[in-house]
């Protein structure tokens, strides 16, 4: 009886080789390998390749790349056109983020309510966020058409004359900002609403007992409690705006008079239209530096936030 039982144990352990716990040592590396390889090949290596190229001159067609040191950067930073591109990018980013967040903040306080009506409005406001930027760009190009566009018609109803939205150098960038804000607001609003809903109710109840006014309630409770969400949105917004490409490529192609040319489009133009690979890479390195700084700020703040909790 006992013998039979013990042979049963041995059988199990011999039949299938007992899986040693130590043999699993390599498994996690195997599991992450495919993902890591993709990252290394398509994201990490290209960054270094780009840095390498930024010190060279190359037109893509000729077989050799000539080392030129910092020349690309020097030319770049002394090129008034590039400085304008930087200025455009910063203006675009600043106003897009500022307007998106401010409007979304107001909207979210207004729309943060229960009921089908509000969820319908929230859905409607959000819908541009999931539409292809191609369609958004073309649609707004048509809406902002100076002669037959919807926007000028609406303005004509209140007696405003036709505005050359996309053809006037002073206005075109602002027009692109309007489009970006229109697209962003829904997303921002929903994120702020989520932030609002995570504010503990008892804070407001306490305030109600103290007869706190609405404005004070906002500045003393709502706004501080929202600040993590707002910070997140600011960073996401900046990262998102800085890499704007689609609307520019489809609507203005950087014009008129370079007034809407931004960093990514500039890199694209130099690399793919003028074949100035080294020069474009140098511009790419500048974008890399900007993104790197933003990312660092973001993770710093994020780790602090985790700390507080």
């Amino acid at each position: 009886m006992n013998l039979a039982k013990s042979s049963y144990i041995n059988e199990v352990s011999e039949g299938e080789k007992p899986r040693s716990i130590k043999l699993t040592k390599w498994r996690p590396y195997l599991l992450i390998a495919p993902a890591i390889i993709v990252f290394l090949v398509f994201f990490i290596q290209p960054i270094f390749y780009m840095i390498y190229l930024s010190f060279h001159e190359w037109n893509f067609i000729s077989p050799d790349k000539t080392f030129v040191g910092l020349e690309n950067f020097i030319v770049l930073l002394s090129d008034p056109m590039f400085l304008q591109v930087i200025r455009n990018t910063l203006m675009y980013t600043f106003f897009t983020v500022l307007l998106s967040i401010s409007i979304a903040l107001l909207m979210s306080i207004w729309l943060n309510r229960q009921g089908w009506m509000y969820s319908f409005v929230q859905g409607a406001v959000f819908s541009p966020h999931i539409i292809s930027l191609v369609s958004i760009a073309m649609l707004w190009m048509w809406i902002m058409d100076a002669d037959y566009g919807l926007l000028n018609w609406v303005l004509s109803l209140v007696g405003i004359n036709k505005v050359p939205w996309l053809t006037e150098p002073n206005i075109a960038l602002a027009s692109l900002i309007i489009i970006a804000v229109w697209k962003n607001i829904g997303y921002y609003t929903l994120i702020i609403i989520a932030g609002l809903q995570s504010i503990p109710k008892h804070l407001y109840e306490a305030a109600a007992l103290d007869q706190t006014s609405g404005i004070r309630r906002f500045t003393k409770i709502t706004f501080p409690m929202l600040s993590p969400s707002l910070f997140f949105l600011t960073i996401i917004g900046i990262l998102d705006s800085i890499k704007v490409f689609e609307t520019i490529s489809i609507i203005t192609k950087g014009g008129p008079l370079n007034s809407t040319n931004t960093l990514v489009y500039y890199i694209y133009e130099n690399g793919f239209i003028f074949f100035k690979i080294g020069y474009a890479s140098a511009a790419g390195v500048i974008l890399l530096v900007i993104l790197g700084i933003l990312t660092l700020i973001y993770f710093k703040a994020l780790s602090k936030r985790v700390h507080y909790q």
Binding site: K5, S6, I9, N10, P18, R19, I21
Partner: peptide, 9 residues
């Protein structure tokens, strides 16, 4: 039983 199981899953 009479089996050393240190290495057995």
């Amino acid at each position: 039983g009479d089996q050393l199981v240190n290495e057995v899953a």
